[in-house]
Structure formats: C-alpha cells, structure tokens
Amino acid sequence: MLELLLQTGLNALYAAAYLSLVAVGLVLIFGVMGIINFAHGELFMLGAYVVVALYSGLQMPFVLVAAIGLVFVGCVGILMELSMFRQLRGNPLGGLVASIGFLMVLQALVAMGFGVRMEHVPPFTQDVIILSERVRLPVQRLIVIIVAVMLLVALWLFLKRTKFGWALRASAQDKEAAALQGISLRTTSLIAMFIGGALAGIAGSLTAPLISVTPTMGHSVIVAAFIVIIVGGIGSLEGAVLAAFIYAFVHTGVTTFLDGVIADIVGLALMLAVLVIRPTGFFGSADRA
C-alpha cells in the first residue's frame, strides 16, 4: 500500500510539473492582458508536434528539439498578440472568442499537416530509476520534473529581479502606473505571450514521448489548466503552482484507486466548488469576460 502511494505520488509530481508550466503561462497572460487564452492547450499541442516533426521525423537531438519547441511556440504566442489580442485590448470577450478561433485554426492546420491519428514518439531514453520493486520513476518523467522546476525558478527570478519582470508584475496590478514608468502595455503583452507560449510549448515537447499525441490533445490539458488556475485563485502564479500539485495528486489518486472518468468529474467538481464558494468577480464589473 505504501509503495502504491509512493508510486501515485511520483506520477502526480510529474503531472503537476507539466501542468504548472501550462497554468503559469495562462495566469501570466490573464494578469497582464486580461485575456483568457483558450488556445493555450493548443500551444501545448504545438510543442508536442515540434517533437513529432523534428525528433521522430528528422531525428534531430531531443535537447535541441525541446529548445526549438520552446522558442517556436513562444513565437506563436507573439503572433497571437500581434495579429489578434493587440487589436482587442479592453475587450476580454473578444479576446476569448478570438483565442477559440485560433485554437480551431491550429488544430486544423496540424490535422492537415500530420493527420488526425495518434503519433508515435519514440522515447529519448528507456531508463527507469528503480526505487523499489514497485516504485519506479522513468528518467523521462524525472527530466520533465527537473526542467519544470528549473523553468519555474527562472521565471520567478525573472519576475522578481529584472526590470521587465517588474514591469510585468506592475502591469498585472495597475496598468496606468506601469505605463507611467515608461514600459508600455505593448511590450509587456509581447513578453507575457512569449513566456506563456514558450512554457506551454516546452511542456508539450517534453511530454510528447509520454502521452498520446493527437491534434486534439490540447483539450484535456486546457481543462486541467483551467481547474488549476481557478482553484489557485486566478491571477496568482504561486497559487497556480500549488493548485497544480493539489489537482495532480487528487486526479492521479482518484484515477489509480477508482477510475479516470470519476477523476475528471472530481476535478471539475472541485473547480465548481471553488467558483461557488469564492466567486471572484462577483462584484467588479471591470473583469467581466
């Protein structure tokens, strides 16, 4: 029983790691731009398809491919900002709808380029760390965890220690004050979209060999990410990371001991409960989407 719990804990840790990367980007974008990016799951999916194209296809080294995934999807984030969100400033419903449109386009493009069938991505290492007879940690998962921790720490340092990071936090709190400091919302939005995209992209790239890669894989990721940001208190990066852990442990636990569908129901019910008990945005009309 203890071993089963340990194994479940390790699985949850891995799920929490990549989920944090996705959720943190979502929170950052919402904080700076006030837009809920529904296409965030598709950015994750794009990261996975970078691996399909360059690693399983062109046989490039995985480390390089993951780095390309990070930069490429970050640039897609910038493209979203330039082509859509910039024109829709101050129109959260418009931004949300545009992001839904964008996710359909991305899904369709990938489906046309790669087909809708599940892609097989060969593992970049077969090694498994054997902690005990029944507690095993595949090295691939360990790497996801390590990279996620590194990136989250890097993001934290960036936000706390650099001028741009300060600007990002400032514009999440008070747009006018931030603008007075000479850092425009245009710049901070570009940075937020790049970081958000890049984190989702690398999460997709790293997990590509571990999960089923299809053009619609972003769906379950975005649902999980929404649960995480709501439970974490929308707008809080630390809350999102914490909630990613809670959600991953609950979901993995219920999946292991009951079944996957029940786990999904529990996750959604958790989000609903948080929304009911603490309906943020119940008063202010400014944050109406």
């Binding site: 959260p92 989000m271 929304l275 009911v276 309906p279 945005g281 119940f282 944050d287």
Partner: peptide, 27 residues
C-alpha cells in the same frame, strides 16, 4: 450554483457543469 458567478466565471462554471453531466453519461 452557476448564478453565484458572472462573466468569465459563469462561462467556465457552465463549462464545468456541462462536462460533469457529459462525463456522467459516459461513466
């Protein structure tokens, strides 16, 4: 529960409620 929320929160809440129903059909 849903009309304790509004705006974006209602949007997400209605999605969650709908998905729960759908998953119940599935389960």
């Amino acid at each position: 529960p849903l009309f304790r929320m509004k705006g974006f929160y209602f949007l997400i809440g209605s999605f969650a409620a709908g998905e729960i129903i759908r998953l119940l059909w599935k389960r």
